[in-house]
Computed example of a mutant assay.
Amino acid sequence: MAPRTRKPERRTEALSRERIIEAAVELLDTAGEGGLTFRALTERLSTGAGAIYWHVANKDELLDAATDAVVTDALALKPARVPGSPQDRIRAVALGLFDAIDAHPWLAAQLATQLSRGPSKSVTPRILESIGQQVRALGVPESRWFTATTVLMHYILGAAGQNAVNGRAHGPGVNRGEFFNAVSAAWKQLDPDDYPFTRAIVDQMRDHDDRAEFLAGIALILAGITAGRSRTP
Rank of each mutant, 00 (worst) to 15 (best):
L215A: 09
L62A: 08
D68A: 15
L41F: 12
L27S: 09
A40K: 07
P79G: 06
M153L: 15
L215D: 03
A169F: 08
F214H: 03
P233I: 07
N58I: 05
P79E: 07
G96I: 11
T147P: 00
M205R: 09
F180C: 00
H170D: 05
R231T: 12
A24K: 04
A164S: 15
L97D: 01
R17M: 11
A182L: 14
I218Q: 04
W145L: 13
L45R: 07
E178F: 12
E18T: 14
I156E: 01
A40R: 11
P233T: 06
G139Q: 06
Q110E: 14
G96Q: 08
L62V: 08
A160H: 05
Q204Y: 11
E213H: 06
G34H: 10
R10M: 11
P83D: 09
V70F: 06
D191V: 04
G173N: 10
A14R: 15
P233W: 11
R117K: 13
P119F: 07
L15T: 04
G34P: 00
D29F: 09
A200K: 14
I225S: 02
Q134A: 10
F197E: 01
A182C: 05
D60P: 00
A57H: 13
E13H: 13
A148G: 02
A159V: 13
H154R: 12
L27I: 12
V202Q: 09
G48K: 12
A182T: 14
Q162G: 03
R11W: 03
D102N: 07
G177A: 15
R4V: 14
R229T: 10
L115E: 08
A94T: 02
D207F: 12
L28C: 06
T30S: 15
L97Y: 03
L62S: 04
